[in-house]
Structures are given as structure tokens and as C-alpha cells.
């Protein structure tokens, strides 16, 4: 095979593998671990649109996840609206909030932006924890919302088995990856990269940096909120500490930093490395050393930042190209 066809086929082969995986995995626990892995890969890829390409470090994305989870759950519990529709409503709401946060904060640099987004997400969580009702919408404060497992089916996004959830999040991930790949090659991608790296030079080259970042933020918050609905439908129970927690925002950033910010494969690679660490340390040390996974994250982050500051995607991409090179018939002569 030529190099080109191989490069085209490799992602398709991976996708086929991902599609076939549930056939091999029988245990519901492992299935759940895989679903959560894809869920985090999706979240981080969405985050990457702002946190990677636009070169800022938002640490409050759980707020958007919360907006998505609460919106669709309230709509389906109180009004019987399908979560699929609620998902879109939540996404639009999160997008509006994302733009409203971005307007004042994108003028800040570095740590100040990160701190502002943390402050917003925490403020939002405390608010939700202390509000029982907004008008007709019951939030139930710290008790959260429960989705009764009644009436399974695609329309209600509610399933007795794990497989449908797996395929839903897999499709979501593939779509957002394709979107990311498309954007990184488009004018917007160039503008985000340029504005993130050297804002003054970017402005002189005709780029309205703040506007490009706002567009990225709008997309990112919309996509993050969709995952919120998925989370609610998967776990059937949401409360402020689960969907709007800082831990979640930080974990997204961890995954991105370790996998490689601003690359397409980085978030997926990061999730593939870190999620198993997190899950298995919880399974084996959950009762004796809870929270151990965060320490392991920290150690991995230090190691990666020291030896591969641009994330694991860099050496792995090189390896990938090397393998493709070996396999292809029209090898480049070294």
C-alpha cells in the first residue's frame, strides 16, 4: 500500500476497532470504564478548542457540563421533553453563558484568565447548591436530581445495557474529532493558533483575536454541555458536586496537558492514559487510599511536562509516522 492510502486507512481501522470493542468486553464494569474514557476524551477534545488552539487555560468547563446536565434533566423530568432536544437547549444556554464569560475574561492573560474561570465555575456550583427552585424549575439544591429508570428507549436516551451509551459517546467523540480536524485546517484554526501564540502580531495581520476566541469558546461550551446531558442519562443522578465540581475541570486540563494541548490526538491519548489510572486506582485503593489517582496524575504531569512539554502526542505522532513509513510500499529513503 502507498503511504497515502495507509494514512487514510489507519484512522478508519482504529474506528472499526472501537466499534467492535463491545463484542469483546463482557463485564459491565469494564464497559462503564470504557464509556467514561470516551466521555473524558470527548470533554477534553471540546475543551481543546479553547484551551488548546486559542492558547488560554480555562479551568471552569464543569460549569458548562452542569448547565447541560441540569437543563436536559429538568426539561425531561418536569415537561417530558426528550433529552435529545434538552441536549440542544442546554448546549445553546451554555454557549450563551460561555460567550458572556469570555467577553470580559479573554482580555486577561495567562493565570488571570484561569483564575477567573475557576471563580466563575465555583460561584456557579455554590449557587446551584443553594437554590431549590428557579421559577418553575426545581434544582433541588445539594440533593440533586434523579432520573427514574423507567421507559427505556432511544427517544428517552435511556437504556438498560451499557452498549448504546458506548456507541452514543463514540459517535459524539468521532464527530467532535472531525470538527476539530476541520477547524485546525481552516481560517479559524489559523487565527486561533496565531492569536494564542503572539496576540499583537496576530492583530497586525488582520485578526480580531478576541472575536476568534469567543467563537471557539461558544463552540467549546456548546459541545461540553452536550456531554452533560450524556452524563446525566448515563448515571441517572446528578448533583452539583458531581457535574459542576472543580475536580472535573482540573481533570480535563490534566488530560489535555499530558496528552498534548492544541493537537487533535492529544486529548484522546491523554484520556487513554489517565482514565485507566484513575479507575484502577479507585478499584484497588478506593477504600485504603482514596484520591491516590490525583497524586498519580500529578506525578505523571510533572514527568510529562519535564520530558515532553508538548504532551505525549509528540513522541507518539513520530512513532505513528515511523510505523506508517515502515508499512508503506513507497518508503521514503532515509
Amino acid at each position: 500500500m502507498t503511504r497515502k492510502t495507509l494514512e487514510r486507512c489507519a484512522p478508519l481501522a482504529l474506528l472499526a476497532l472501537a466499534l467492535a470493542l463491545p463484542l469483546a468486553v463482557q463485564s459491565a464494569t469494564y464497559m462503564h470504564i470504557l464509556i467514561v474514557l470516551l466521555f473524558y476524551a470527548y470533554l477534553t477534545t471540546s475543551w481543546n478548542l479553547v484551551g488548546g488552539f486559542a492558547g488560554v487555560l480555562p479551568l471552569g468547563h464543569s460549569a458548562f457540563l452542569g448547565i447541560g446536565a441540569y437543563t436536559s434533566t429538568i426539561l425531561s423530568l418536569q415537561y417530558g421533553i426528550s433529552p435529545w432536544l434538552g441536549m440542544i437547549v442546554g448546549g445553546v444556554l451554555a454557549m450563551i453563558v460561555g460567550v458572556l464569560i469570555g467577553l470580559p475574561t479573554f482580555k486577561m492573560r495567562g493565570a488571570y484568565f484561569a483564575l477567573a474561570t475557576i471563580a466563575f465555575a465555583e460561584g456557579f456550583r455554590v449557587m446551584v447548591e443553594n437554590i431549590d427552585k428557579i421559577g418553575p424549575f426545581a434544582l433541588n439544591g445539594p440533593r440533586g436530581l434523579q432520573i427514574p429508570p423507567l421507559g427505556f428507549g432511544l427517544g428517552k436516551m435511556l437504556f438498560a445495557d451499557k452498549e448504546p451509551y458506548y456507541y452514543i459517546i463514540l459517535v459524539m467523540l468521532v464527530v467532535v474529532l472531525m470538527l476539530t480536524a476541520f477547524i485546525s485546517r481552516s481560517k479559524l484554526g489559523y487565527y486561533l493558533n496565531a492569536g494564542g501564540e503572539e496576540p499583537e502580531a496576530a492583530m497586525a495581520l488582520g485578526i480580531n483575536v478576541a472575536r476568534a476566541k469567543l467563537i471557539a469558546m461558544a463552540m467549546s461550551s456548546f459541545l461540553t454541555a452536550l456531554a452533560g446531558t450524556f452524563y446525566a442519562q448515563l448515571n441517572l443522578y446528578i448533583h452539583p458536586k458531581s457535574v459542576i465540581s472543580l475536580d472535573l475541570s482540573f481533570e480535563i486540563a490534566f488530560i489535555a496537558l499530558i496528552g498534548g494541548r492544541g493537537s487533535i490526538a492529544g486529548p484522546v491519548l491523554g484520556a487513554m492514559l489517565l482514565r485507566p489510572v484513575s479507575d484502577f486506582s479507585r478499584i484497588y485503593f478506593g477504600d485504603t487510599l482514596p484520591g491516590l489517582h490525583l497524586i498519580i496524575f500529578g506525578v505523571i504531569l510533572i514527568l510529562v511536562m519535564t520530558f515532553q512539554p508538548r504532551g505525549l502526542q509528540e513522541p507518539l505522532t513520530r512513532l505513528y509516522h515511523w510505523v506508517i513509513d515502515r508499512l508503506s510500499s513507497d518508503r521514503r529513503t532515509a
Partner: peptide, 19 residues
């Protein structure tokens, strides 16, 4: 000078021509 240091020369100039 303020190049987009992590990108190639072509990438840098393409950012300009997108104007």
C-alpha cells in the same frame, strides 16, 4: 520580531494571507 515560533514558516505567512 514576533513569529509564531512553534509553526512553520509557511504557516506563519498563511496566517497573513488569510486576511
Amino acid at each position: 520580531v514576533k513569529p509564531f515560533a512553534s509553526k512553520t514558516v509557511l504557516y506563519n505567512v498563511t496566517v497573513g494571507s488569510f486576511a
